[in-house]
């Protein structure tokens, strides 16, 4: 196996992230001009609370030793095989390098959301949960931007990001992904069934190359018929 370079780990402040508040309100089922109480107060309370978070982090690692194996619908990175499935492998077509990443809203928020959802205030817990998901995705956006800037000087583009658990990429590959990132990237660990802890975390891969493409619209890749994000 090739020598693994040290992954890049970054810390973020809530204020650094681009969070679309209208989208959060929409996820709550309302529009920004019609958000009844207590949801408005709850949202303000969670946003205020999130501005103090100290454990929003992201880690990425660009791997140069890669191969896309069409017949096995898989990708190889540092000789580790990831069975990403036909759809993702096709989306990574043309990738000369692969960036693996983990981003997290951190354990403070994740634990708060879980405790509230299961206990004293599920509604407030739900608002934390939605905001936590948005933070993890916003950190993912930041990492994606950084990777894009980093490879641009070599004339390369990037693909969208793709995560285990979706499009038939089995979550059991998470262990290999985490291995590439040094084991416990950004303080995120895995359960025996390959799930991330803190819960509000995302992981995945981004293709890099001169001939790869970024899709503005990728909902047609996914089978979730009732997904809120589906346009």
């Amino acid at each position: 196996m090739s020598i693994v370079k040290t992954a890049t780990e970054l810390k973020f402040h809530f204020r650094d992230l681009v969070i679309d508040q209208d989208q959060i309100i929409k996820l709550l089922g309302y529009s920004s001009d019609c958000l009844p109480e207590p949801f408005g107060s709850y949202l303000n309370e969670t946003i205020r609370d999130c501005s103090h978070l100290e454990d929003i982090r992201g880690t990425y690692q660009i791997i140069e030793d890669v191969e896309l194996v069409a017949r096995r619908s898989s990708i190889l990175a540092n000789h580790l095989e990831f069975k990403v499935g036909k759809t993702i492998r096709k989306e990574l077509e043309g990738a000369e390098k692969l960036a693996f990443f983990v981003s997290t809203a951190g354990s403070t928020l994740s634990e708060k959301a879980v405790a509230l959802l299961g206990g004293e205030d599920p509604v407030l817990g739900y608002v934390y949960d939605i905001l936590g998901g948005a933070i993890a995705e916003a950190v993912g956006d930041k990492l994606q931007q950084l990777i894009r800037q980093r490879v641009k000087k070599d004339g390369c583009n990037i693909t969208n990001r793709y995560s285990p658990g979706y499009c038939h990429w089995d979550v059991s590959d998470q262990y290999k992904l985490f291995r590439l990132l040094g084991g416990s990237p950004s303080g995120v660990s895995l359960t025996p069934s390959s799930l991330m802890n803190p819960v509000k975390s995302i992981s995945g891969v981004i293709g890099i190359g001169k001939d790869v493409h970024f899709r503005e619209y990728q909902c047609d890749l996914c089978q979730m018929k009732n997904c809120f994000y589906k346009k």
């Binding site: 709550l28 089922g29 309302y30 949801f39 205030d121 599920p122 509604v123 739900y126 608002v127």
Partner: peptide, 10 residues
């Protein structure tokens, strides 16, 4: 939507 259902459940 979900928040109202959660309120009802509460």
């Amino acid at each position: 939507f979900v928040p109202q259902v959660l309120m009802s459940a509460k």
